[in-house]
Design a binder for these strands. Sequence first.
DNA 1: GTAGGGTTAG
Length: 713
Amino acid sequence: MEIPLSRFNNISLDQIQTSISNFPSIVLDHKLFSNTKFSLFNGYYDFSSFSSKNIRIRTPLSLIRCSSIKQGLQPKPKPKPNQIELERVSDKPSTQIKKPTNTSGLCGEIEKLVRFRRYKDALELFEIVECESDYYDVGESTYDALVKACIELKSIRGVKRVYNFMMRSGFEADQYMNNRVLLMHVKCGMMIDARRLFDEMPRKNVVSWNTIIVGLVDSGDYEVAFDLFMIMWREYHDAGSRTFVTMIRASAGLGCDYTGRQLHSNALKMGINEDAFVSCGLINMYSKCGFVEDAQRAFDEMPEKTVVGWNTIIAGYALHGYSEEALTMYFEMQDSGVKMDHFTYSIIISICARLASVEHAKQAHAGLVRNGFVSDLEANTALVDFYGKWGKIEDARRVFDRMPCKNLTSWNAMIAGYSNHGIGTEAVCMFEQMLREGQVPNHVTFLAVLSGCAHSGLSDQGWEIFESMGRKYKVKPRAMHYACMIQLLGREGLLDEALAMIRDAPFRPTENMWAALLNACRVHNNLELGKFAAEKLYGMEPEKLSNYVVLMNIYRSSGRLEEAADVVQTLRKRGLRMLPACSWIEVKKQPHCFHSGDKSHVQAEDIYKQLDKMMQEITKHGYVPSKKSLLPDVDKQEDRVLLYHSEKLAIAFGLISTSASTSLQVVQSHRICGDCHNVIKLIAKISQREIVVRDASRFHHFKDGTCSCGDYW
DNA sequence: GTAGGGTTAG
């Protein structure tokens, strides 16, 4: 590795050149070290290891970069070179050398680094203190800085180092410092140690209680948190708004509006209900518990609506699928003049991903850029997710590539994007790239990449990755991973193997696994096994319509109309109604929704004319209507309805209302039927347009007469 | 000086 010599700031080049004996392990003469004011922060070197004769400088350990701090390193008060040697050789703790009384040296540097938010560097510098503990007097302010560094980095190792050093050096922590140490453990998720520290604390104050309770709530131990809260409440009568906010959050986590409401009424009694934090907590609690109206009321009662208040209520509406209401609140927020933050944009973008509203998402994207949140990790991840979900996979990739840093979620969103688009090879590529960059995959990653393999029929890669999950990455395959593999087997027509996979699973087979098998039976027209899988599913989720519909369609495509009718009967007996399928298309910023055979659109006449014209043209290209796969909304007038499936209407409308080269984006509520799939392939060919359809399970990219799904979905 | 609210992944 090439390291520029200029990094050795205060040493002449001659000296350096004569000193370097073994790059990148550089050995400097001890005289050189003692005589030279060596600026640690301008170099890339770690001084923590000393050899007996020479001062050995290991490189490039830590990349300690700090051009702004020119303060030199003073490891001890004027040590003589031979002293170093003697001490090292004898390997005894030094007694002769006094600790420096001020912290302007190394400890000061650590504090400075933390102030500059360079936590990693601070913890690395701390290594020297650990090695040379006799020379440094680590005081409260330094510990405070180290605690902050650990919290910011969520570094368990850092916590252990700092805590052990504190114990070893005999530091006597006061109430403040004990609380800080407790907080450090809590924030790094070390709840067992945190609980021990809390229980063993010589004195506790309200802060100690709040800190441990926050930790419990963060880690989902809501019941224990409530137990402690009750003790605190009895003993102290001193719970303030901060404790309340945490307990309201615990109620939200439990989905328990009963305790939430009790806390709310107590907050009213205490006069803290108008506190912005309490209000936001209440809005969140009510919406998480499913009481959106109460959430709205809590929001309305906020005297000063903060950006978080707006975000919370918008997210609340979005959580329950009230996307339009959420957007309405977003517009109100814009009117109110409150400055939006990156959370607002993240929420809006994720709502747009669901609504498939490109225009609003684009506006949010623009707002994001305008307000300088371009590098915000979560917002960008939401964008990757959005563009991935909305068929703009290239845009997703562009955002992804421009992200200055990525986390696991970003990678997962990108891989899932490729998977949903049926670009399995690219999903696998991204997965491999992710591994190369040192990102550790989790179960979501595997789900994304395996479903990519399943969507694209990448059998070999799929099995290799599936097999590596537990062996290499210690991620236990879950039901959904099994479902992907079942899908892969099903795609290849290996239905018996798929059944065996379900039976051999190390856990009780889930709905998803049977559903994957049922779908494979649909594709391969395997009536017997299909019936078997469907019956399993009826037992597990009797309310789920799609199970009946798939079996009904299997019967129909095998020409067994009586059995198909029986399924419809069973369905009715169970009080289930077939929901009308619908498709959306956005034209000129306006979403248009179509139901099958729907004539409510203002341009209905033109749309139907266009559709008839389209059908005539594709018939010339060899289209024959298929009656095989029928949708939930079909009834006696099958042919007519099949002809006017909602996706066909949406596409006809798209064709007449956009210019010739525009690609069409359609979102639909159901899995695309075989007939529509054929029709759209031909329309894409004849009209020379790209048509992207997002159905209930994935994307279909139609271009030049083919579809990205390879006719398996 | 220490503790509190909201976002992302099928």
